[in-house]
Simulated assay, not measured.
Amino acid sequence: MKIKNLVFDMGNVLIHYNAMHYVEKYAKNKEDWPLLLHEVFQSVEWIRMDHGTITEAEAVEACCKRLPPRLHSIAAQLYAHWNEDIPPMEGMEELIGRAKAAGYGIYLLSNTSVRYHNFRKNIAALRYFDGEFISADWHLMKPSPSIFRAFCLHFGLNPAECLFVDDQPMNAYGAQCAGMDSIIFYGDMPQFEAALAAHGIQLSAAQEGTV
């Protein structure tokens, strides 16, 4: 069946997301970096925020119970400010603009917390999107096939007509289990465009001066 819709993940697809970069930015003592990485970004609370079952304030409180007092303010800063440093993935906005011009539906399907609604305005590529589906809003998460089914039901899309793009193989597999084809994005735009072409995605030609 012909692909009519492109469905994009956010972190490390639309934008760069590097948890260790944030830790290094806010914590000056290198010895603290592994602990902060594990207890903030790799914590159960971080997952629960993405699932929409815990507030950010509750996550900070739980995290700080596991950290020494000297790191409490740093942990709070990480929760509050990580999204201020989310540079766009080079070339992705331009490619999405071409896909939109070629007539494809463009959608977002991302595991992220409700904080997304505060920083989405900083992701320029979203101006091309026809719809956004955020895990915390629906209490569903990738790679569970249920989130992909709910996404398609919400937007009235046929999963067989959707191509999902994610940087994580387990999420790409989850999409496949729900009837979507998928591509793993490795950060290489020429490789990605070739993968799209292999799936029959015909993009409009790039125009000089466009973004």
Score class of each variant (00 low, 15 high):
A75M: 08
A76N: 08
Q77A: 15
L78F: 14
Y79G: 07
H81V: 08
H81G: 09
H81R: 10
W82T: 07
W82C: 02
N83Q: 13
E84A: 15
D85M: 12
I86A: 11
I86P: 12
P87M: 07
P88M: 09
M89P: 01
M92Y: 10
E93C: 15
I96K: 01
G97L: 04
A99E: 05
A101H: 09
A102M: 04
A102Y: 08
Y104R: 06
Y104T: 02
G105H: 07
G105K: 02
N111Q: 13
T112W: 15
S113I: 14
V114W: 14
R115A: 15
R115W: 14
Y116Q: 05
H117D: 11
N118I: 12
F119S: 06
R120Q: 11
R120D: 12
K121Q: 12
N122E: 14
I123D: 06
Y128K: 05
D130V: 06
E132I: 02
F133I: 04
I134T: 02
S135A: 15
A136N: 08
A136G: 07
A136V: 10
D137T: 05
W138T: 10
K142D: 09
S144V: 10
S144P: 03
P145V: 05
P145I: 00
I147L: 02
F151V: 03
C152S: 00
C152A: 03
L153E: 12
F155C: 01
F155K: 00
G156N: 04
L157N: 00
N158Q: 09
P159Q: 02
P159Y: 05
P159E: 06
C162A: 08
L163K: 00
L163Y: 01
V165Q: 03
V165T: 03
D167R: 00
Q168G: 07
P169G: 04
P169E: 09
P169F: 08
N171F: 09
N171D: 10
Y173T: 10
G174Y: 02
Q176H: 11
Q176K: 11
G179F: 02
D181V: 03
S182Y: 08
S182T: 07
I183R: 00
I184C: 10
F185R: 02
Y186H: 08
D188A: 11
